[in-house]
């Protein structure tokens, strides 16, 4: 299992377009992917579920933990990290 902790810098957090892109990216991989909001209490949820990702309430500057496990775990983690680091493609 791989894991990364990363801050979300987007102004709306994981909501609206960023949340959609996050879930769409996760859904491209066969690995099991879980995500948790470190800046709020709560558990890991399925990163491929838009509803569960929204329940994390990730806002700007919150830190999230992503866990990936499976055949393409490496690529999945890299893709999600780069999506967040690129601020969801908005510079």
């Amino acid at each position: 299992m791989l894991e990364a902790t990363i801050p979300v810098k987007h102004k709306v957090g994981l909501h609206a377009r960023p949340a959609s892109l996050f879930v769409q990216t996760a859904a491209k991989f066969s690995s099991a992917i879980k995500v948790k909001n470190l800046s709020a209490n709560g558990n890991f949820v399925d990163a491929k579920s838009i509803i569960m990702v929204l329940t994390l309430g990730v806002m700007k500057d919150h830190e999230i933990v992503i866990q990936t496990e499976g055949a393409d775990a490496d690529a999945a983690l890299a893709a999600l990290k780069s999506l967040i680091e690129s601020n969801f493609g908005e510079s």
């Binding site: 959609s20 879930v23 769409q24 949820v45 399925d46 579920s49 838009i50 509803i51 569960m52």
Partner: peptide, 12 residues
């Protein structure tokens, strides 16, 4: 679009 994502939501 968001509704369609929810329609396909694995948790649901």
């Amino acid at each position: 679009e968001a509704h369609r994502e929810m329609l396909n939501d694995p948790a649901l």
